[in-house]
């Protein structure tokens, strides 16, 4: 049995290992449960399960989940249940080759100020921006890493260099994004 506090702490230090731990702990039981209780196909159950683990992870990263009164497994099953019902209601079956719109829909549900086109354009812009800029920005904005942590991760000279690099990267990303936005207005 994984303690919730230990696991949340682990997400902060070794996130991929922590995700795998909870993934393996819940997988077979959750897949069977989704197929039995919600008549999901094996593939749909797998999509819902993986999406649920992703949401658990996101809830911790965005600090929506700080304390948990139930155990982790119950929490994952709760997310899976909601997603299964949502998918049944909307008859929107997860499309296994379109994860971008799948994840984008989840983020839009949480923040109505952005739309799918904008998210697609940002993702495209990030791909065009490439590394190391993409990594620097995602680490800073999503993973909330400090300048010192990014300096170490990227082997930069010091935190000032990283700060400067982050500023330049953001400007570049914004320019790419702006050109995509302009293009979409013309189209």
């Amino acid at each position: 049995m994984i303690s919730v506090i230990d696991w949340i702490q682990k997400i902060k230090t070794n996130e991929n290992e922590a995700i795998k731990e909870i993934y393996m702990l819940c997988k077979s039981e959750c897949l069977q449960w989704l197929q039995k209780e919600y008549n999901c196909t094996k593939d749909d159950a797998m999509d819902i399960f993986q999406l649920s683990i992703m949401i658990l992870y996101d809830n911790i990263k965005t600090q929506k989940l700080k304390i948990l009164t139930s155990n982790l497994k119950t929490y994952v099953f709760g997310i899976a249940r909601n997603k299964a019902l949502e998918l049944h209601r909307s008859r929107q079956i997860p499309v296994t080759d379109d994860y971008l719109s799948f994840v984008a829909s989840y983020v839009i549900d949480e923040d109505n100020n952005v739309n799918e086109d904008q998210i697609n354009m940002v993702c495209q812009s990030l791909d065009e921006l490439g590394d190391p800029c993409k990594t620097v920005l995602v680490q800073y904005y999503y993973h909330d890493k400090s300048m010192d942590e990014i300096t170490l991760m990227m082997s930069y000279k010091n935190a000032d260099t990283t700060k400067n690099q982050k500023y330049k990267c953001l400007k570049r990303l914004q320019n790419i994004y702006f050109s995509h936005k302009q293009k979409s207005i013309k189209d």
Partner: peptide, 11 residues
């Protein structure tokens, strides 16, 4: 907008 796009990319 960029922040939410980065979130999608990370997820």
């Amino acid at each position: 907008e960029l922040h939410q796009g980065m979130r999608v990319k990370a997820l």
